[in-house]
Design a protein around this nucleic acid. Structure first.
Ligand SMILES: [Zn+2]
Ligand SMILES: [Zn+2]
Ligand SMILES: [Zn+2]
Ligand SMILES: [Zn+2]
Lengths: 129, 129
DNA sequence: CCGATTTTGACAACGGTTTTCATTTTAGCG
DNA sequence: CGCTAAAATGAAAACCGTTGTCAAAATCGG
């Protein structure tokens, strides 16, 4: 039914890291797909609402999306050079967030955690270069 | 020298939580200050560059600023209802981020961590209402 | 005072995202 | 198959926070 949405998800499934809407749109067009930017945005929104993709915001305000392997709560270790992303679990962080919230009498605690670094390949390239 | 910048910083110093540029601009104008929005943006940029204020991005892409008490690395516990913000230290989180990065061979690890919740007053209001 | 330098702010431009709305596609039905 | 109702699509316009432009105003140095 949602042929276009599937196309968008396919792109994400085969991507190493987070991708932007415009980015995905460009690739689809390059692949010859007849699709509009609006539809890409709508597909990403729907996928994010369904919990089928994770969304986060870049430092410069762009929304980026990723089809993560696990549907359970997790965080990301992102290479700031090539974008390669690893999903990481962090029980320690989960506990810490709850604790620090409770200590100050806050309720309904949520949190955002992202870890950035330079991945092994990019580290190698950098030291070689 | 920077009268306008001081005015912007004053607003932040007397604010409980993070404030947006437009927000600060509106308050300054309401207080009768003659200042332009561009100048507010420039002041905030300068203050952020100086490390005198923390900046982060809202879920809806707005940049918000806060004059934090400590100049050292810390995170924030933010009331998602009234914006009241507490600065929190998290040695456990710092260690976790380093560890998880190292485990995957990533170098030059950085991280972003924010905790959200409903503050005591807002929790009271909510249960009363 | 006077010219050089910096700061300011009204306004336009920018870029990512959302809305609009007319057209196209699909679903349901006899 | 027709045929209509409902859903999906996408081009273009609107939106909104932010940044750039540039001439006027304030400040500085001498
Ligand atoms: Zn990399
Ligand atoms: Zn978590
Ligand atoms: Zn509150
Ligand atoms: Zn930290």
């Amino acid at each position: 039914m949602t042929n276009r949405r599937d196309a968008v998800r396919e792109i994400l499934v085969h991507s190493e890291g987070f991708r932007s809407a415009q980015d995905i749109y460009a690739q689809l067009r390059a692949d010859g797909a007849k699709i509009g930017l609006t539809t890409v945005y709508r597909a990403l929104q729907a996928l994010a609402d369904n919990g089928q993709v994770d969304m986060l915001r870049t430092d410069d305000g762009e929304s980026v999306y990723r089809a993560c392997a696990t549907g359970t709560h997790h965080h990301h270790l992102v290479c700031r050079r090539c974008g390669r992303t690893v999903e990481v679990a962090g029980p320690a962080v989960e506990r810490w967030a709850e604790t620090v919230g409770a200590e100050h009498g806050f309720t309904a605690i949520t949190h955002t955690v992202e870890v950035f670094g330079t991945c092994p390949s990019c580290t190698a390239i950098k030291s070689a270069g």
